[in-house]
Structure formats: structure tokens, C-alpha cells
């Protein structure tokens, strides 16, 4: 992961589900850039036109509920969005985001304080969320130790490669 991420916030409500993140009809696409063109299309068709590379999605509770489609976090990442901040994430989306390297931050305080358009700077390494517009900073929940060790190992793929090498 990059050391610092910076962009403007786009704020949404609770239960942003995978059907609006990437509608079913696009699930036959696997190219991240192509998928990225349709990120959030079901919720906010203007999102991809309005956002700039590095921008950040901010949402309430249960972000990513619904389907197991990994193309949901892939589409968000493919659109150039640098991270998602939410009060909480749905279980499968959380795993998928970490597996594909989409930075996610859990922080109720950040979500309550940040407004659409605020300029945000994030440090995935230590979970710091800085609101440049408002001159505030918030902390994201720490990753559980096992998740942290997976992230530090570079994600699930290197972890699996290591396990395979040990077996041979």
C-alpha cells in the first residue's frame, strides 16, 4: 500500500450494497479499468464522471452488503478511488477489499464529521484519517492481529504462495 492517500470525499448513506456498487449486468467484466467505469453506477451514476483519481468514498454502516462479487471492490479500485471509509463493512466485502488491496477504514467519528467535498488525507499504515478542510483528524479501528499480519505479508496471495512453498 502507498504510504499516504489524498483526495476529496464523496459521502453516501448506510447499506451501500454490491448491486449498486457494480450492477449485475457488468459482472461479466473482469478488467479493473472497464469495471471502474461503472463503479457505484446503481447509486450515483454521476460518480465516475465527477470523481478525480485519489478521491475517497465515505459511507455509513454495512458498506458492501449483499453479493460476494469481488468485482465490487475491484470496480471501486479500478475507478481510481483510493479508499473507502465507513462506520462498518459487510463481512465478505471486508475480506475481498483486503484481498485485492483496496484500503478500507472503519471510523464512526470520521464518517460523522466528514462532509462531501472535504479534502482528506489517509495513512493506511497507522489508520490516521486527516480532514484537511476542517483541520481535524480521526483514528480508524485497528485491524485484528491476523488481518494485520496478512496485510503486512502483502495480502492473501503472497501468504498462499508461502504456504505452497512450505509444502513442496
Amino acid at each position: 500500500m502507498e504510504s499516504k492517500l489524498r483526495g476529496h470525499a464523496h459521502k453516501y448513506g448506510k447499506n451501500v450494497d454490491t448491486d449498486v456498487i457494480i450492477p449485475g449486468k457488468y459482472c461479466n467484466i473482469i478488467d479493473p479499468i472497464e469495471l471502474g467505469k461503472h463503479a457505484l453506477e446503481g447509486l450515483d451514476p454521476e460518480y465516475t464522471g465527477r470523481m478525480r483519481a485519489g478521491d475517497i468514498i465515505v459511507a455509513d454502516t454495512n458498506f458492501g452488503c449483499g453479493s460476494s462479487r469481488e468485482v465490487a471492490p475491484i470496480a471501486i479500485k479500478g475507478s481510481g478511488t483510493s479508499a473507502v471509509i465507513a462506520k462498518s463493512f459487510a463481512r465478505i466485502f471486508y475480506r475481498n477489499a483486503l484481498n485485492i488491496g483496496l484500503p478500507i477504514f472503519e471510523s464512526a467519528e470520521a464518517v460523522d464529521r466528514i462532509e462531501s467535498g472535504d479534502e482528506i488525507e489517509l495513512e493506511p499504515e497507522n489508520g490516521t484519517i486527516r480532514n484537511i478542510t476542517k483541520g481535524e483528524s480521526y483514528r480508524a479501528a485497528e485491524f485484528p492481529p491476523f488481518m494485520r499480519s496478512l496485510i503486512d505479508a502483502g495480502g492473501l496471495v503472497p501468504y498462499v504462495e508461502k504456504r505452497l512453498a512450505e509444502r513442496n
Binding site: S68, R95, N96, N99, L156, V160
Partner: peptide, 30 residues
């Protein structure tokens, strides 16, 4: 299973859960 409704098999007294594709790839090989 690489589908969120994999939980269906709980009907038979199995533990079954849905995951994304990277987790499924890991399960394929490990």
C-alpha cells in the same frame, strides 16, 4: 463458495459460507 448464497447448504447441517474470488483461489490450491 464464490457466491454469497453458499450459506444454503446449512439446510443439511453443513457449515457453508460465501467468499470472494481471491479467497476461493486460495481454497482451490490449499
Amino acid at each position: 463458495g464464490g457466491d454469497s448464497h453458499t450459506c444454503t447448504y446449512g439446510a443439511f447441517g453443513a457449515f457453508a459460507t460465501g467468499m470472494g474470488s481471491t479467497d476461493i483461489a486460495a481454497a482451490f490450491v490449499l
